[in-house]
Amino acid sequence: MTVEQIANRLAEYCRHDEFSKAQEELYADDAVSIEPFVTPGFEKETKGRAALKEKDQKFSSMVESRYGTTVSAPVIAGNSFSFVLNMDLKMKGRERETMEEICVYTVKDGKIIAEQFFM
């Protein structure tokens, strides 16, 4: 797949909250994920698709309700792309909120090798 195809496919998975499916199909085995800061129960950097899947499951277990996710059109430059992700959700023990972040991805050999989030 091209970078553009990967970007569009990932955006579609995200719009449907299918993050695990995206990881299985689009991510390299040694992909890395970088968060903007350390939060309780999560590392700033996660390495490997198995660890990314665990991170996704952990986050999902903290969500009480999802009300929708929107994703901007991807912006592509060379082997990287980004989009804005907005998640309308209620975390357990918290009020309903909208989480907004810029997501930046790097692709190599047809797979996502890195993701980084900015809030």
Rank of each mutant, 00 (worst) to 15 (best):
R96Q: 13
Q23H: 06
Q23T: 10
F59V: 12
Q5R: 03
E97K: 12
E95A: 14
T106C: 03
S72A: 07
K53C: 00
L52W: 07
T98P: 00
L89D: 07
A7Y: 02
P36H: 13
I76A: 02
G41C: 07
Q23S: 08
P40I: 13
G48V: 13
S65G: 00
I6G: 00
N8Q: 06
G110K: 05
K90C: 05
C14K: 01
K21H: 09
F42Q: 12
A114W: 01
P74G: 09
R9H: 02
Q116V: 13
S20T: 11
L10R: 00
F19N: 10
E95H: 10
Y67C: 12
D109R: 05
A31K: 07
L26K: 10
A77C: 10
E115R: 05
Y27C: 11
A77L: 08
E25T: 09
E101K: 15
V38A: 11
F42A: 12
E97I: 14
A31C: 15
Q23I: 13
I34P: 02
E64Y: 08
F42S: 10
I6W: 04
D56C: 09
T39P: 00
M87R: 15
R9T: 13
Y27E: 04
K21F: 04
A77T: 15
V71M: 02
E25Y: 08
I6M: 02
E18S: 11
F81W: 05
A51G: 04
S33D: 13
V71H: 02
K111N: 01
G41T: 11
D17S: 11
L85H: 14
K44F: 07
L89I: 15
D29H: 11
Y27N: 05
E97T: 15
E101Q: 14
T69N: 06
L85K: 08
Y13F: 11
Q116Y: 06
E12N: 11
E45F: 02
S72C: 09
S80L: 09
R66M: 07
H16P: 02
P40C: 13
V32I: 14
F59Y: 13
K53W: 00
F37M: 14
A22R: 01
K108M: 07
F59K: 04
D88M: 09
L10Y: 05
F42T: 12
